[in-house]
Write a protein that binds this DNA or RNA. Structure first.
Lengths: 195, 195
DNA sequence: TGATGACTGTGACCTAAATCACAAACATCA
DNA sequence: TGATGTTTGTGATTTAGGTCACAGTCATCA
């Protein structure tokens, strides 16, 4: 199935290792394709995040709703990103987050128990997992620093430099929320920044 | 050596697995004890973070200095925490961070190549690494959300709830910087919050 | 085609937190 | 013991960014 080809390519590229035919069959036997239409939820607040999803096509946002009803986007995800509330996924606690498709979404999903199997039995998969874990740690470190110490403008410039494609794929109000800004402030920053 | 006992206990507790005598000898052969006096640096901005340190005793802060000369604390570390700029440690790039002992510090340190060996050869060690990586991911997720969406008061309350011992071990100006606040603001929050 | 809902821009105003400045409390060490 | 550095408190002032309100633009779909 062509869905899986992109996934296999991704694993091999990130890990620098090849998947055997057996590896591929094991992955295909357990990762389940899933489609969501725009606005559908992959995860709802209060539910346990039973599945982790790998984005084949489309985009999604991970967000919370505060007591005043304001939404705060924690993560925006595109092709080749993993989708989960890791706290809930690892600990099986009810999630504080919602994950919603922003465009029609094609995923491959699996449970934590299945992931553990892949880690044990597929060297390329477990190498990929440790590389990703490193990348996440690095990205988190950077983003924390930006969130705490940078001004609104600096955070926006950072986004332009690091994730320029976000600007093409996501509307401004989503970007603003992701940066921890009001949409009005982002609009003004954009006005001032060029020209 | 008694330094190592605490370290072995830690690995066994986190991983839920026992270390064999061989495992222990391997760790003792490669993890090097290191002492730093208060104010000494474990890592200086611009240097590559060659070593990861495990804190046996004492405390440290990881911070940056911005163009105006202001310091921003990204991480405060105590006993049984790992000390490193992971970006620099994994990628061998020059670090943007400084790591400085806040109290006299006893560490066990190792290089990335040595860590890779332990991961390969010591099951308890690699299980510990994956548990820690999960915990980091969860903690980062929470802290990001707090940094972006919470007010100064809420962030301080969060700290009281999650890391009450920080208040005993670190001076207020360090706590303020860690929370991304000015020391004046933290002082006022404390004044208002009780009584 | 027009109508409804989503997204963006812009002004007026407000507020949380930073900055500046000075003083008090506390530690450390010769 | 006093002297010097470190940490904390508190007032006055400033500022980045939020909030509110309304208008304009754009897309979608019947």
């Amino acid at each position: 199935m062509s869905n899986f080809q992109a996934f296999f390519d991704y694993i091999q590229e990130i890990s620098g290792k090849l998947l055997s035919e057996d590896d591929k069959h094991l992955l295909m036997a357990h990762f389940r394709p899933k489609k969501l239409r725009k606005r559908q939820y992959f995860l709802q607040e209060g539910d346990v995040c039973k599945y982790i999803g790998f984005v084949i096509k489309g985009s999604a946002r991970t967000f919370t709703v505060d007591e005043k009803g304001n939404e705060h986007i924690l993560k925006l995800s595109l092709e080749n990103w993993w989708l989960a509330d890791f706290e809930s996924f690892y600990l099986l606690t009810p999630s504080r987050f919602n994950i919603e498709a922003l465009e029609d979404l094609e995923l491959l999903q699996a449970t934590n128990a299945q992931i553990e199997e892949f880690l044990k039995n597929i060297p390329a998969f477990s190498k990929m997992a440790s590389v990703i874990s490193q990348n996440y740690t690095i990205a988190n470190q950077k983003r924390m620093q930006a969130a705490m110490n940078y001004t609104a403008e600096e955070r926006y410039e950072d986004l332009i430099n690091n994730y320029p494609h976000f600007l093409k794929r996501f509307p401004q109000n989503m970007i603003a929320s992701y940066l921890g800004l009001s949409r009005e402030t982002l609009s003004r920053i954009r006005k001032n920044s060029f020209k």
